[in-house]
């Protein structure tokens, strides 16, 4: 992600109640207000009954501020934080299924090792590679594997966390 993109991409974290329909409410709000989600990851949090969502949102400051406020307005959303300008770590997991032949297999394995990625399934004509890291790393691996023929890719979306401090619940939207 280049410096120019950074202003247009924001990372938000929300703590939400783990109830039926919460994802629908969040997704519906984004759709209705015309906001654009670049990626969304949801999973359990450290607190029972609460999930944490990480959003990567495209938009200017006005849009993202509205996203945060509209998210916070949802009753099932407990806290929202825009952590874009915080020191954060981000990770995404991707599974990439790539075509292989006897000739290409060795080269692909070399690339995978260079990226510290894992091969988790091998068949005579393909292999499945697991990579974890920032989005750029996955993008780079994808670029290098593309010439071999990518059959399928599945990315989880980014999860993010503020470094050091206890949690991301500290800004004005919470």
């Amino acid at each position: 992600m280049g410096q120019n993109n950074r202003a247009e991409q924001h990372t938000l974290i929300a703590l939400v109640e783990d109830k039926p329909g919460v994802l629908t409410r969040v997704a519906s709000m984004f759709r209705r207000r015309g906001f654009n989600i670049a990626s969304l990851a949801v999973g359990n949090s450290e607190q029972a009954g609460l999930s944490r969502m990480t959003f990567v949102v495209n938009g200017d400051d006005y849009t993202v501020s509205q996203v945060a406020k509209q998210l916070d307005k949802l009753i099932d959303v407990i806290e929202v934080a825009d952590i874009t300008n915080e020191p954060i770590v981000t990770r995404e997991l991707a599974l990439i299924k790539v075509k292989t032949t006897q000739i290409t297999r060795g080269e692909i394995i070399q690339i995978v090792n260079l990226f510290r990625a894992n091969i988790i399934d091998v068949s005579s004509e393909s292999m499945v590679i697991e990579i974890t890291g920032e989005q750029e790393k996955t993008n780079a691996l994808y670029g290098l594997l593309s010439p071999f023929g990518i059959i399928e890719m599945h990315r989880t979306g980014v999860v993010a966390m503020v470094r050091g401090r206890a949690n991301g619940h500290h800004n004005g939207h919470s």
Binding site: P20, G21, T24, R25, S28, M29, R32, I75
Partner: peptide
């Protein structure tokens, strides 16, 4: 109906 009214209620529940 909770789906139908989701964007036009402050909140709803089943």
């Amino acid at each position: 109906v909770t789906g139908v009214t989701l964007p036009i209620t402050k909140h709803n529940m089943l």
